[in-house]
Amino acid sequence: MNGQSVTPSLPTGKSLKPSMFSRGARRSALGLVMVLPSFFLLLFMIVVPIFTSIQESLKGNDGNFTWDNYKYLFTDPAMSSSIKYTIHLTVVSSIMVLVIAYLLAVFLRFSTGRLAKWIERLYYIPMFIPSVIATYGMINMYGNHGWLARIMLLFTNEPFMRIIYDYKGLLLANLWFNIPFATMLLSSALSSIPNSAIEGAKDVGAGKIQIFIRIILPLSFKSMLVAATFVVMGVIGSFTAPFLIGPNAPQVLGVAMQQQFSVYFETGIASACAVFMFAICSLVGYFYIRSMMKEER
């Protein structure tokens, strides 16, 4: 305050170091250094590839600017049916996952029986099984000559229902891969609802259904949204299961994109496909972030 640039420190009388080397500046520099690795990772793994993809998707075979790749994406019958197929699969899978996971979570939260205890111990096991192995397991189970088909053969000579290489198989795979995580998220949300909140509602005269609709559902809705976001993103971007047990036509977008890129060497179309998928996910992400911000106000 007295205009001097170097002020003596009070107890020792030594002159203090200039502010460039002060503790605060050093700490913020350290913080910056610690952030840099993740920043570069983000830059080179996500941001730069996105721009390369966008650039690539807008380039024709002659290297000039064109919308052709996107036109192809939405007009080519095979491609557009794949898009519709993917969106349909995503919506149906996500709704089923959320409904099942929510019911499971509610059961785990409020049941004190032995069944609930066992489910609680076992339900997250699918998360620890590599997706390739799980997918082959599914082929073993539901395939044309799988366990289920062989067991059915004991009762009937009708040909076994087609599950693998079909919509149903993908749906089952999505349930397998996504229910445990969604259940985990929803369980933790439900267990954070204190018993006294529910007892309070009972006390003022609310029945079971009223408690569920007016207390439990609203208090776990935010986590439901989080779970929905993760499930949608996971399903739409899934590759292993659709690649191994998905139908050949129409295909799930991830597989279609891989085919365009590695089989037909259509980098432009593959890029357009990637950009489109990213756009869908950004949309979901946008709704997610918006609802989070609204909660925090």
Binding site: P194, S196, A197, E199, G200, A201, K202, D203, G207, L219
Partner: peptide, 17 residues
């Protein structure tokens, strides 16, 4: 059951919703 009893309870934890 609690919802049918002519009692009302104030809990230890503030259990407002």
């Amino acid at each position: 059951p609690p919802e049918k009893r002519p009692t009302a309870m104030v809990f230890q934890s503030y259990n407002l919703w």
